[in-house]
Computed example of a mutant assay.
Amino acid sequence: MTNTTKNVYDLETVMLEDATSEMVIIDQTLLPSETVFLRLKTQKEIWEAIYKLRVRGAPAIGVAAAYGIYLGAKAIKALEYKEFYTDFISLKKYLASSRPTAVNLFWALDRMDECVKRYKEKTVEDIKFELLKEAHKIKEEDTWVCRSIGEYGLTLLKPDMGILTHCNAGQLATSKYGTALAPIYVGQEKGYNLKVFADETRPLLQGARLTAYELNKAGVDVTLICDNMASAVMKNGWVQGVFVGCDRVAANGDTANKIGTSGVAILAKNYNIPFYVCAPTSTIDLNCASGKDICIEERNPKEVTEMWYEKRMAPKDVKVFNPAFDVTDEKFITGIITEYGIAKAPYNESLKEIFKRKRGMV
Protein backbone atom coordinates (compact mmCIF):
# COMPACT_ATOMS: atom_id res chain seq x y z
CA MET A 1 0.00 0.00 0.00
CA THR A 2 1.49 3.36 -1.03
CA ASN A 3 0.81 6.85 0.23
CA THR A 4 1.52 10.23 -1.36
CA THR A 5 0.82 12.53 1.60
CA LYS A 6 2.71 15.82 1.57
CA ASN A 7 2.30 16.65 5.25
CA VAL A 8 4.80 14.92 7.53
CA TYR A 9 2.37 15.21 10.46
CA ASP A 10 -0.05 12.92 8.60
CA LEU A 11 2.51 10.11 8.51
CA GLU A 12 1.74 7.63 11.27
CA THR A 13 4.73 5.40 11.84
CA VAL A 14 2.88 2.56 13.58
CA MET A 15 -0.86 1.87 13.44
CA LEU A 16 -3.12 -0.95 14.57
CA GLU A 17 -6.06 -2.23 12.53
CA ASP A 18 -7.69 -4.44 15.12
CA ALA A 19 -10.57 -5.50 12.90
CA THR A 20 -8.18 -7.26 10.51
CA SER A 21 -5.60 -8.15 13.22
CA GLU A 22 -2.84 -6.22 11.44
CA MET A 23 -0.16 -3.78 12.45
CA VAL A 24 0.50 -1.21 9.73
CA ILE A 25 3.91 0.46 9.50
CA ILE A 26 5.79 2.69 7.10
CA ASP A 27 8.61 0.65 5.58
CA GLN A 28 11.43 3.04 6.45
CA THR A 29 13.97 1.06 4.44
CA LEU A 30 12.27 2.32 1.26
CA LEU A 31 12.18 6.02 2.13
CA PRO A 32 12.55 8.58 0.65
CA SER A 33 11.93 7.18 -2.85
CA GLU A 34 8.79 5.27 -1.83
CA THR A 35 6.29 5.70 0.98
CA VAL A 36 5.01 2.16 1.42
CA PHE A 37 2.83 0.90 4.24
CA LEU A 38 3.30 -2.74 5.27
CA ARG A 39 0.51 -4.79 6.80
CA LEU A 40 1.99 -7.20 9.33
CA LYS A 41 -0.02 -10.12 10.69
CA THR A 42 2.38 -12.75 12.00
CA GLN A 43 4.88 -12.53 14.84
CA LYS A 44 7.61 -13.46 12.35
CA GLU A 45 6.68 -10.48 10.15
CA ILE A 46 6.69 -8.13 13.16
CA TRP A 47 10.04 -9.50 14.41
CA GLU A 48 11.55 -9.07 10.96
CA ALA A 49 10.24 -5.50 10.66
CA ILE A 50 11.90 -4.51 13.94
CA TYR A 51 15.15 -6.36 13.20
CA LYS A 52 15.48 -5.03 9.64
CA LEU A 53 14.66 -1.45 10.78
CA ARG A 54 11.50 -1.25 8.71
CA VAL A 55 10.20 0.27 11.93
CA ARG A 56 12.91 2.02 13.94
CA GLY A 57 13.54 4.65 16.58
CA ALA A 58 13.30 3.73 20.25
CA PRO A 59 9.75 5.05 20.91
CA ALA A 60 8.35 3.63 17.65
CA ILE A 61 9.92 0.26 18.44
CA GLY A 62 8.16 0.38 21.81
CA VAL A 63 4.80 1.07 20.18
CA ALA A 64 5.40 -1.67 17.60
CA ALA A 65 6.32 -4.11 20.36
CA ALA A 66 3.13 -3.28 22.29
CA TYR A 67 0.86 -3.70 19.27
CA GLY A 68 2.84 -6.71 18.11
CA ILE A 69 2.55 -8.67 21.33
CA TYR A 70 -1.13 -7.70 21.59
CA LEU A 71 -1.74 -9.25 18.17
CA GLY A 72 0.19 -12.33 19.23
CA ALA A 73 -1.80 -12.60 22.45
CA LYS A 74 -5.04 -12.07 20.56
CA ALA A 75 -4.30 -15.20 18.53
CA ILE A 76 -3.59 -17.42 21.56
CA LYS A 77 -6.25 -20.15 21.78
CA ALA A 78 -5.82 -20.98 25.46
CA LEU A 79 -8.86 -20.36 27.67
CA GLU A 80 -7.14 -20.71 31.07
CA TYR A 81 -4.80 -18.07 32.45
CA LYS A 82 -1.83 -20.34 33.18
CA GLU A 83 -1.69 -21.74 29.66
CA PHE A 84 -2.33 -18.29 28.15
CA TYR A 85 0.47 -16.72 30.18
CA THR A 86 2.93 -19.45 29.20
CA ASP A 87 2.26 -18.73 25.52
CA PHE A 88 2.41 -14.98 26.17
CA ILE A 89 5.88 -15.25 27.72
CA SER A 90 7.07 -17.21 24.69
CA LEU A 91 5.86 -14.36 22.46
CA LYS A 92 7.58 -11.82 24.69
CA LYS A 93 10.93 -13.61 24.52
CA TYR A 94 10.68 -13.94 20.76
CA LEU A 95 9.98 -10.24 20.11
CA ALA A 96 12.62 -9.20 22.67
CA SER A 97 15.28 -10.99 20.60
CA SER A 98 14.81 -8.65 17.63
CA ARG A 99 16.92 -5.69 18.86
CA PRO A 100 19.19 -6.10 21.92
CA THR A 101 20.11 -2.43 22.51
CA ALA A 102 16.82 -0.51 22.32
CA VAL A 103 15.53 -0.39 25.88
CA ASN A 104 12.07 0.74 24.75
CA LEU A 105 11.54 -2.69 23.23
CA PHE A 106 11.95 -4.38 26.61
CA TRP A 107 10.17 -1.56 28.45
CA ALA A 108 7.04 -1.93 26.30
CA LEU A 109 7.06 -5.72 26.47
CA ASP A 110 7.51 -5.61 30.26
CA ARG A 111 4.66 -3.13 30.54
CA MET A 112 2.38 -5.43 28.54
CA ASP A 113 3.53 -8.32 30.73
CA GLU A 114 2.59 -6.36 33.87
CA CYS A 115 -0.82 -5.70 32.32
CA VAL A 116 -1.41 -9.43 31.89
CA LYS A 117 -0.41 -10.14 35.49
CA ARG A 118 -2.48 -7.23 36.83
CA TYR A 119 -5.66 -8.71 35.35
CA LYS A 120 -4.93 -12.40 35.87
CA GLU A 121 -8.20 -12.86 37.76
CA LYS A 122 -10.15 -11.84 34.65
CA THR A 123 -11.08 -14.06 31.73
CA VAL A 124 -8.54 -14.49 28.95
CA GLU A 125 -10.77 -12.49 26.59
CA ASP A 126 -10.90 -9.64 29.11
CA ILE A 127 -7.11 -9.75 29.47
CA LYS A 128 -6.77 -9.43 25.71
CA PHE A 129 -9.00 -6.34 25.80
CA GLU A 130 -6.88 -4.85 28.58
CA LEU A 131 -3.77 -5.48 26.48
CA LEU A 132 -5.36 -3.59 23.60
CA LYS A 133 -6.08 -0.62 25.85
CA GLU A 134 -2.53 -0.69 27.24
CA ALA A 135 -0.99 -0.73 23.77
CA HIS A 136 -3.11 2.26 22.71
CA LYS A 137 -2.09 4.03 25.92
CA ILE A 138 1.61 3.48 25.15
CA LYS A 139 1.17 5.15 21.78
CA GLU A 140 -0.88 8.07 23.17
CA GLU A 141 1.63 8.67 25.94
CA ASP A 142 4.47 8.72 23.42
CA THR A 143 2.89 11.68 21.59
CA TRP A 144 2.62 13.60 24.88
CA VAL A 145 6.20 12.68 25.83
CA CYS A 146 7.58 13.93 22.52
CA ARG A 147 5.65 17.20 22.68
CA SER A 148 6.89 17.77 26.22
CA ILE A 149 10.49 17.09 25.19
CA GLY A 150 9.98 19.58 22.39
CA GLU A 151 8.77 22.27 24.78
CA TYR A 152 11.66 21.74 27.21
CA GLY A 153 14.16 21.61 24.35
CA LEU A 154 12.88 24.84 22.86
CA THR A 155 13.78 26.70 26.08
CA LEU A 156 17.43 26.09 25.12
CA LEU A 157 17.06 27.62 21.66
CA LYS A 158 16.70 31.06 20.12
CA PRO A 159 15.23 31.97 16.73
CA ASP A 160 17.46 31.46 13.67
CA MET A 161 19.88 29.14 15.49
CA GLY A 162 21.76 26.43 13.63
CA ILE A 163 21.17 22.89 14.91
CA LEU A 164 23.03 19.70 14.03
CA THR A 165 21.44 16.27 14.47
CA HIS A 166 22.63 12.72 13.88
CA CYS A 167 20.55 9.73 12.73
CA ASN A 168 16.76 10.12 12.82
CA ALA A 169 14.90 10.92 16.02
CA GLY A 170 11.89 12.61 14.49
CA GLN A 171 8.31 11.93 13.52
CA LEU A 172 9.33 8.70 11.82
CA ALA A 173 10.97 7.36 14.98
CA THR A 174 8.00 8.04 17.28
CA SER A 175 4.24 8.49 17.33
CA LYS A 176 4.53 12.24 16.65
CA TYR A 177 7.11 15.06 16.75
CA GLY A 178 10.06 12.83 17.55
CA THR A 179 12.58 13.35 20.33
CA ALA A 180 15.64 15.18 18.98
CA LEU A 181 13.54 16.82 16.27
CA ALA A 182 10.68 17.75 18.64
CA PRO A 183 12.23 21.11 19.65
CA ILE A 184 12.66 21.88 15.95
CA TYR A 185 9.04 21.05 15.13
CA VAL A 186 7.71 22.97 18.12
CA GLY A 187 9.98 25.85 17.13
CA GLN A 188 8.60 25.65 13.58
CA GLU A 189 5.09 26.10 14.98
CA LYS A 190 6.28 29.19 16.87
CA GLY A 191 8.20 30.80 14.00
CA TYR A 192 11.75 30.12 15.21
CA ASN A 193 13.12 29.54 11.69
CA LEU A 194 15.76 27.10 12.90
CA LYS A 195 18.39 25.91 10.43
CA VAL A 196 19.20 22.21 10.67
CA PHE A 197 22.26 20.29 9.52
CA ALA A 198 21.47 16.59 9.21
CA ASP A 199 24.33 14.10 9.25
CA GLU A 200 23.77 11.41 6.62
CA THR A 201 24.46 8.76 9.32
CA ARG A 202 26.41 5.92 7.75
CA PRO A 203 25.98 3.08 7.06
CA LEU A 204 22.15 2.97 6.95
CA LEU A 205 21.78 6.66 6.03
CA GLN A 206 18.91 7.44 8.39
CA GLY A 207 19.85 11.12 8.31
CA ALA A 208 19.93 11.29 4.52
CA ARG A 209 16.90 9.10 3.89
CA LEU A 210 14.69 9.96 6.87
CA THR A 211 15.66 13.15 8.73
CA ALA A 212 16.22 15.17 5.57
CA TYR A 213 13.02 13.69 4.13
CA GLU A 214 10.72 14.55 7.02
CA LEU A 215 12.20 17.98 7.81
CA ASN A 216 11.99 18.93 4.15
CA LYS A 217 8.34 17.80 4.04
CA ALA A 218 7.64 19.91 7.13
CA GLY A 219 9.13 23.02 5.53
CA VAL A 220 12.13 23.20 7.87
CA ASP A 221 15.38 24.71 6.55
CA VAL A 222 17.51 21.55 6.38
CA THR A 223 20.95 20.94 4.87
CA LEU A 224 22.24 17.39 4.43
CA ILE A 225 25.92 16.78 5.20
CA CYS A 226 28.16 13.71 5.20
CA ASP A 227 29.12 12.53 8.67
CA ASN A 228 32.70 13.69 8.24
CA MET A 229 31.55 17.25 7.46
CA ALA A 230 30.25 17.93 10.98
CA SER A 231 33.54 19.44 12.11
CA ALA A 232 33.59 21.84 9.14
CA VAL A 233 30.10 23.25 9.75
CA MET A 234 30.86 23.60 13.47
CA LYS A 235 34.15 25.38 12.79
CA ASN A 236 32.36 27.73 10.38
CA GLY A 237 30.12 28.84 13.25
CA TRP A 238 26.96 27.51 11.62
CA VAL A 239 25.95 25.29 14.53
CA GLN A 240 24.91 26.58 17.97
CA GLY A 241 23.52 23.34 19.37
CA VAL A 242 23.50 19.58 18.78
CA PHE A 243 20.35 17.55 19.47
CA VAL A 244 20.33 13.76 19.23
CA GLY A 245 18.02 10.97 20.35
CA CYS A 246 19.06 7.80 22.11
CA ASP A 247 18.30 4.12 22.52
CA ARG A 248 19.46 3.80 26.13
CA VAL A 249 20.67 6.07 28.92
CA ALA A 250 22.68 4.54 31.76
CA ALA A 251 22.33 5.69 35.36
CA ASN A 252 25.54 7.73 35.14
CA GLY A 253 24.38 9.57 32.01
CA ASP A 254 26.33 7.58 29.42
CA THR A 255 24.15 7.28 26.33
CA ALA A 256 23.89 4.73 23.52
CA ASN A 257 22.78 6.14 20.19
CA LYS A 258 23.36 5.45 16.52
CA ILE A 259 26.99 4.84 15.61
CA GLY A 260 28.82 8.14 15.10
CA THR A 261 27.05 10.02 17.87
CA SER A 262 30.03 9.91 20.23
CA GLY A 263 32.25 11.49 17.57
CA VAL A 264 29.75 14.34 17.14
CA ALA A 265 29.74 14.87 20.92
CA ILE A 266 33.54 15.06 21.03
CA LEU A 267 33.54 17.60 18.19
CA ALA A 268 30.87 19.69 19.92
CA LYS A 269 32.95 19.73 23.11
CA ASN A 270 35.97 20.92 21.13
CA TYR A 271 34.01 23.79 19.57
CA ASN A 272 32.18 24.70 22.82
CA ILE A 273 28.79 23.79 21.32
CA PRO A 274 26.19 22.39 23.74
CA PHE A 275 25.32 18.75 23.09
CA TYR A 276 21.86 17.59 24.19
CA VAL A 277 20.39 14.10 24.32
CA CYS A 278 16.60 13.92 24.00
CA ALA A 279 15.50 10.92 26.03
CA PRO A 280 12.03 9.79 27.06
CA THR A 281 12.21 8.36 30.58
CA SER A 282 11.34 4.99 29.03
CA THR A 283 14.86 4.95 27.52
CA ILE A 284 16.57 5.68 30.86
CA ASP A 285 17.78 2.51 32.53
CA LEU A 286 18.72 3.21 36.14
CA ASN A 287 19.61 -0.47 36.54
CA CYS A 288 22.40 -0.02 34.01
CA ALA A 289 25.33 1.56 35.85
CA SER A 290 27.27 2.94 32.88
CA GLY A 291 27.77 2.68 29.16
CA LYS A 292 30.12 -0.26 29.72
CA ASP A 293 27.05 -2.33 30.60
CA ILE A 294 25.13 -1.56 27.39
CA CYS A 295 25.00 -4.37 24.83
CA ILE A 296 25.99 -3.04 21.40
CA GLU A 297 24.41 -4.81 18.44
CA GLU A 298 26.71 -5.64 15.53
CA ARG A 299 24.99 -5.82 12.18
CA ASN A 300 25.45 -7.41 8.77
CA PRO A 301 28.71 -6.37 7.00
CA LYS A 302 26.75 -5.95 3.76
CA GLU A 303 25.28 -2.73 5.16
CA VAL A 304 28.77 -1.25 4.81
CA THR A 305 30.13 -2.97 1.73
CA GLU A 306 27.27 -3.15 -0.74
CA MET A 307 23.81 -2.26 0.54
CA TRP A 308 23.59 1.21 -1.03
CA TYR A 309 25.73 0.62 -4.11
CA GLU A 310 24.99 -0.69 -7.58
CA LYS A 311 28.21 -2.70 -7.30
CA ARG A 312 30.08 -3.83 -4.21
CA MET A 313 32.40 -0.98 -3.17
CA ALA A 314 34.82 -2.87 -0.90
CA PRO A 315 37.24 -5.75 -1.49
CA LYS A 316 35.42 -9.08 -1.40
CA ASP A 317 37.25 -10.59 1.57
CA VAL A 318 37.85 -7.46 3.66
CA LYS A 319 36.90 -7.63 7.33
CA VAL A 320 34.07 -5.30 8.42
CA PHE A 321 33.24 -3.88 11.85
CA ASN A 322 29.63 -2.70 11.84
CA PRO A 323 28.30 -1.77 15.30
CA ALA A 324 24.82 -0.25 15.23
CA PHE A 325 25.50 2.08 18.17
CA ASP A 326 28.23 3.73 20.17
CA VAL A 327 28.25 5.12 23.68
CA THR A 328 28.68 8.83 24.36
CA ASP A 329 30.38 9.39 27.71
CA GLU A 330 28.39 11.58 30.08
CA LYS A 331 31.24 14.13 30.25
CA PHE A 332 30.43 15.20 26.69
CA ILE A 333 26.70 15.67 27.32
CA THR A 334 25.47 19.15 28.27
CA GLY A 335 22.00 17.97 29.24
CA ILE A 336 19.52 15.13 28.90
CA ILE A 337 16.08 16.43 27.91
CA THR A 338 13.17 14.33 29.18
CA GLU A 339 9.41 14.81 29.31
CA TYR A 340 9.80 15.77 32.98
CA GLY A 341 12.58 18.32 32.59
CA ILE A 342 16.25 18.65 31.73
CA ALA A 343 18.84 16.65 33.66
CA LYS A 344 22.34 18.05 34.07
CA ALA A 345 25.52 16.56 35.53
CA PRO A 346 25.96 14.83 37.90
CA TYR A 347 23.51 12.52 36.16
CA ASN A 348 23.53 9.89 38.89
CA GLU A 349 21.63 12.45 40.94
CA SER A 350 19.66 14.43 38.35
CA LEU A 351 18.19 11.38 36.60
CA LYS A 352 16.88 10.14 39.93
CA GLU A 353 15.25 13.56 40.41
CA ILE A 354 13.59 13.22 37.00
CA PHE A 355 12.02 9.94 38.09
CA LYS A 356 10.85 11.52 41.34
CA ARG A 357 9.02 14.13 39.26
CA LYS A 358 7.57 11.35 37.13
CA ARG A 359 6.21 9.66 40.25
CA GLY A 360 4.82 12.97 41.52
CA MET A 361 7.16 13.03 44.51
CA VAL A 362 8.43 16.58 43.89
Rank of each mutant, 00 (worst) to 15 (best):
V24S: 09
F129A: 15
K176C: 05
N236V: 08
K331D: 09
E353R: 08
A96K: 03
G150K: 04
C278A: 08
C146E: 06
A218P: 04
K302V: 14
I333G: 14
N252I: 06
A169Y: 02
I225L: 12
E45F: 10
Y309T: 13
R359F: 10
G253P: 00
P203N: 02
G341I: 01
G68S: 02
E339G: 03
E214F: 00
R357V: 14
E83T: 00
T334F: 04
A49Q: 07
S21C: 12
A212M: 13
I26H: 05
S262D: 06
G62A: 05
K82M: 08
K331Q: 10
V222E: 11
C295I: 13
G150V: 05
E80S: 07
D110V: 05
N257H: 10
G62H: 01
A279F: 00
I333L: 09
Y177E: 02
E130P: 13
F84T: 11
T42A: 09
G68Y: 11
E310I: 12
L157P: 09
Y347E: 08
M234W: 02
V320P: 09
F243E: 08
D329N: 11
I50L: 06
I336M: 02
N104F: 01
Q206N: 00
A289E: 10
F106T: 12
E298V: 07
G162W: 12
S350Y: 04
E339Y: 04
D247F: 12
Q43M: 10
Y9W: 14
L30I: 01
G241Q: 07
G263C: 07
M361R: 15
M313S: 15
K190F: 01
M229Q: 13
Y51L: 08
M23L: 06
I294W: 01
T174N: 05
V264T: 03
Y152D: 05
P203K: 02
V103H: 15
K352P: 03
W308R: 09
